[in-house]
Design a protein around this nucleic acid. Structure first.
Lengths: 339, 339
DNA sequence: ACATTTAGTGCAATCGATTGCGCAAGTCAA
DNA sequence: TTGACTTGCGCAATCGATTGCACTAAATGT
């Protein structure tokens, strides 16, 4: 490994001069010819500055961490991708951490990342309440939330407009002629779960309907299995409903299974609409109508926000909201008996 | 931030003593009561050793990097998940990098990661030929390949048994009574693409069949679109075939689209079998028969291998091969006209 | 009683880069 | 010619932990 001293010796200057010449921002203070010789020598010797040493001295690590509940989850992986993309373009490395609930809590992960001197932390874990935010705040490490909002907006966040998304879904079903619309909600401890439920209620009220408590059922988790179970409960309770809006595509697919088991057909007997437009839902049977969210774009926005924060470009608490899009496929159609 | 000196001063010992007392491995050299007081003080002051400083001195960073072509790809994301899991359990952080072809090559990424002093590198990028391996070898940084093999086994790798997988697929179709079986191959520059093609050929030969060149068509990429296009070409050329084995689920889904366009039905007119068993292929229409590969498990094995390598437990070049599993769903059935 | 371990801890160098400060030479104006 | 700047670069401290070596005191051996 060639160090900065090797380069300095080769050129016949002091290491500090090499350090400055190699940094475009401070190169100006060094003479033109010297810079050229340093650049050439660095190239020739294959010099790569040791990031670790630089971090120790400068206090900046050029790393940001992201904490996600499940890396393989189709909503989080594109977020990570988009984030990595804009971060790496600016020389930052992304370290991903996935808290294993049984082993170590989010808090511990935060500590470990902070001990690694990350320049910023992205929290994608959707629990509505946990004190990792306080932890970060107290350590003064820049934080941005993604796919999750906080009640009191203390830290920047990037979310999709869940309320608008639900409004889109509800409006679509109403337009088709549905009147009795159910909601299969996600876990209310999760930000998306409660926001979408609220969005559903708002949209219905705006349209002049007041859903009963009975019209909403909460799934234990954002999974097909949980969706399946919850759908069974909901459908048994409200068999005469003609449409159901799920808080999530996975839940919608769970509804599919429940329908199949109870001998009902989608969309003939019941229209179903999901949320997220995750990969392949256009190929299931029937192709799922849903609300498209560009998670990759959210990841990119998160990265941009983080960079601004780290570089101190902005002091406010930005709150980026991305616009959802209605995607109509074949799981929604007018109700059979219009009233 | 409390440093090791703060703890040392608090207890009234030398920083080096604190360092030793905090490391379970070398704690033995320190007196029992002193250790206790140090532990207590460290806890009380909320001391967290600065990983960066430790790395600089010790040369170990407790980080490993993984280079993947696409983080959001359903085959790579579980690999990352499994890897992160076993790595973080041992105190290692995982940094993921995704080479943007247009911006910076894999080589550059490798350099950047090495400059960060990663203790090991996982290469998941499937290109059959690139010199990043040489790069790593010359820098003596432990490397393990995942989902990709090398012709000459210089470095450890974790792959699924592609040949066995194809044998499973072919055997299944033969058992159903198919005789004219096609192969929709993946890009031959990619390890999985060429291995699976070879697996197909071997399996067919073993069964006493000799596929013609015409029976195989190569897709440009492992995507639905490429699969669609290639399937169109293949089906036009061999309309009388009764089954087709795809190198990948995505390609199989592309075949679905091609069938729909040309008015054929699966499985009535043509049986289709995929490879990977990615999420949701059990819900498409018709549910896809495929070869299941546990990518998460591969990720875990990769992590274990990497740890062994880093800790110098093994000097050989292990070559882990995971066993594939046949998953029969509804896209395969006996050919209509049995001969 | 003296030599020799052994256990327990301190000292100071070290990892490789960054950075505030200082110094010398050159520029310019008075 | 001198004083005031500017430009270009070197010096040495510094970041926080690790580690080989040295050293002291107690324990053990002969």
């Amino acid at each position: 490994m060639t160090t900065i001293k090797d380069v300095a010796r080769e050129v016949g200057v002091h290491p500090s001069t090499v350090s400055r010449a190699l940094d475009p921002a401070r190169r100006g203070r060094i003479g033109e010819p010297v810079v050229r010789r340093i650049l050439e020598a660095a190239e020739r010797l294959g010099y790569r500055p040791d990031t670790v040493a630089a971090s120790l001295r400068s206090g900046r690590s050029n790393m940001v961490g992201i904490i996600v509940p499940d890396i393989a989850n189709p909503v989080f992986s594109p977020i990570i991708g988009g984030l990595e993309d804009v971060l790496s373009a600016r020389g930052y490395a992304l370290i991903v951490a996935d808290p294993q609930p049984q082993r170590t809590g989010t808090d511990d992960i935060v500590q470990r990342l902070v001990a690694r001197r990350v320049d910023g932390l992205v929290l994608a874990n959707v629990a509505l309440k946990d004190n990792s935010i306080e932890r970060c705040l107290s350590w003064k490490v820049p934080v941005v939330l993604v796919n999750r909002a906080e009640a009191e907006a203390r830290v920047p966040s990037v979310v999709s407009d869940d309320v608008a998304g639900m409004r889109l879904a509800v409006a679509h079903l109403l337009e088709l002629g549905h009147r009795h619309i159910l909601h299969l909600a996600g876990p209310q401890m999760l930000s998306t779960g409660s926001l979408r439920r609220r969005g559903f209620l708002e949209a219905m009220h705006e349209a002049g309907f007041a859903p009963a408590d009975n019209d909403i059922e909460e799934a234990e988790a954002f999974t097909r299995e949980a969706g399946h179970a919850a759908a069974l409960r909901l459908l048994a309770r409200q068999p005469e409903a003609t449409a159901i809006v799920a808080a999530n595509d996975l839940l919608a697919l769970g509804i599919y299974e429940a329908l199949r088991e109870t001998g009902r057909r989608c969309p003939e007997d019941l229209s179903v609409i999901g949320h997220n437009d995750m990969p392949l839902v256009d190929l299931v049977d029937p192709p799922l109508s849903t609300i498209r969210i560009s998670h990759r774009e959210m990841g990119e926005q998160t990265g941009q926000l983080m960079l601004d924060l780290i570089e101190g470009v902005r002091g406010d608490v930005p709150y980026v909201v991305t616009a959802p899009l209605l995607v109509v496929r074949r799981s929604t159609q007018p109700p059979r008996i219009s009233r």
